[in-house]
Nucleic acid binder design. Structure first.
Length: 462
RNA sequence: GGCGUCGUACCCAAGCGGUCUAAGGGGCCGGUUUGCAAAACCGUUAUUCGCCGGUUCGAAUCCGGCCGACGCCUCCA
């Protein structure tokens, strides 16, 4: 059984896809006005984990992630940097994809961008106006009438009567009937410059929320399984999406809403003034590998705040090394004529924990426990080949979810030669020569390890 | 002001009323093994779960108060 904590109902509930064996998944993607930071990637990593766990359960996942390539921030940034909006957004979209790939995230099936789907959004807005859920203002903007949707506030548990009127609402530059109404369409203003589409209400551009409603329904239908994002998207973004979508299609829209908590950095919240916003490129420059970052982001539960810290780098390094060692140790067995059908029994325990609202901490604990047991048996020489085979199977499944084992690159010929020479030296017990060669190899960025079955070579992590 | 989350060893992090004299990981220290090193393994590191009360036969787990950290309240993942 798969269970998820559904923000909509505020409890853990069994997950049953609408169509048996298939899952329709929509995840809110980046706004491409800048490089995404590690906090953004925490959310994307959680979504990636979700997808991998669904796949581990044999489900066929169709995943759509939108790219927000037009909004206040992108327009502002394009103007500041004196480039066309499209140049800016294409640049950061590409960078985003590179980062995703580097972090070993599975690609989505579709990455629709807002600017390519404006006509669909206009259609949806027209329908909302026709149904009197929206109205047009003098400046050509269209607003959603929040009090026309009785369920408004269900997701975020917000009641407007209790709300403080913040400065942002007070200083809103657009006019509208009621403070909580939100823009579906924004009439053109000089600040928008070249950025404009024609619409029945004149020149303008789409509001933020409408793109997700329109594109999710276009790619996944009026009613789909899972929609997720960071907690901060709960309100207003997802709340507004629900309002628009349900008023438009009248269906139930999304069955399960999942939200991941925020990432803290070096013990505090991320903020530009603290200077603790790390991008993937920066972390890469500091010697982080995708696996180390994955470990930091996946070792805490997705609904708790976790702290990202540079100091934790070596902890991740250690884990990655242990896992790789374990793998090569298992792989050193000759497994010809061994059928690998038996999974270790803890494997089902592992899957069960992941399927329980993505319980990565417990899943990791189960795997580490298992790894220790198998290592102990290998130390004692009491492991049998069936156990080796099933361990490899488990390890493979483990890594299909966590992605913590780096692919070992080819060892350069030069290094191989040095290792061979060192083995010869060791055979004749020339320890001086042997140690010299080890230093030489080490200086070239590789580590030798002597085992019962000969010397092993591995790349030193940066 | 409203809504909500969290506080467990030196650090990270499970735990959701009894199996907790509290998983798992990192670190420290000691040991086995090894030419040395590395790895692996073993042992050690919380009689205690922010503090104070209460409920209960029984609480880290439920309730109340206090202290502390954090989030959302209209475009922030």
């Amino acid at each position: 059984m798969i269970q998820f904590y559904n923000t909509l109902t505020r409890k853990k509930e069994p997950f049953n896809p609408i169509e048996k064996g298939k899952v329709s998944l929509y995840t809110c993607g980046p706004t491409v006005y800048d490089e995404a930071h590690i906090g953004n990637f925490r959310t994307f990593m959680f979504e990636d984990l979700l997808k991998r766990v669904l796949m581990l359960n044999g489900l066929d996942v169709f995943h759509v992630m939108n790219i927000t390539d037009v909004d206040d921030k992108t327009i502002k940034r394009a103007k500041e940097t004196a480039q066309p909006l499209q140049a800016l957004t294409e640049n950061y979209t590409q960078k985003f994809h590179e980062d995703l790939k580097w972090l070993k995230m599975l690609p989505a099936d579709e990455y629709p961008c807002a600017t390519h789907h404006v006509s669909g959004m206009i259609k949806m807005i027209e329908s909302l106006i026709k149904k009197e859920h929206a109205y047009v203002e003098d400046d050509g903007s269209v607003y959603f009438k929040v009090n026309s949707f009785s369920k408004y506030g269900q997701l975020s548990n917000i009641k407007f009567e209790d709300q403080k009127v913040t400065e942002r609402i007070g200083s809103d530059e657009y006019s509208k009937e009621s403070a909580q109404d939100f823009a579906l369409w924004k009439g053109w203003k000089p600040d928008d410059g070249e950025v404009a589409w024609d619409s029945p209400w004149g020149k303008g551009r789409p509001g933020w929320h409408i793109e997700c409603s329109s594109m999710s329904m276009e790619y996944l239908g009026d009613h789909f399984d899972i929609h997720c994002g960071g907690v901060d998207n709960m309100f207003p973004h997802h709340e507004n999406e629900i309002a628009q979508s349900q008023c438009h299609a009248g269906s139930s829209f999304v069955n399960v809403w999942l939200h991941s908590e925020h990432l803290m950095v070096e013990g505090g919240k991320m903020s530009k003034s603290e200077g603790n916003i790390y991008t993937v490129s920066e972390l890469k420059a500091k010697g982080f590998t995708p696996e180390i970052i994955r470990y930091q982001l996946l070792s805490g539960h997705y609904r708790t705040k976790i702290n990202f810290s540079l100091a934790k780098k070596q902890e991740g390094e250690k884990i990655v090394k242990r896992l790789s060692e374990f793998k090569s140790r298992l792989e050193s067995f000759d497994l010809e004529n061994v059928t690998l059908d038996e999974n270790p029994t803890i494997y089902s325990e592992f899957v069960k924990n992941l399927s329980n609202d993505l319980d990565t901490p417990n899943a990791l604990a189960i795997f580490f426990d298992f790894m220790k047991k198998m290592n102990r048996q290998m130390d004692k020489g009491s492991i049998d080949k069936e156990q080796v085979a099933s361990s490899l199977y488990f390890l493979d499944k483990f890594d299909s979810v966590f992605g913590l084992i780096p692919r070992t690159g080819k060892v350069p010929e030069e290094i191989v030669k040095l290792v061979r020479r060192r083995e010869q030296a060791r055979n004749i017990k020339d320890w001086n020569e042997s140690d010299n060669l080890r230093d030489k190899i080490d200086a070239l960025g590789w580590k030798v390890k002597d085992t019962a079955s000969g010397s092993e070579i591995s790349k030193k992590s940066a």
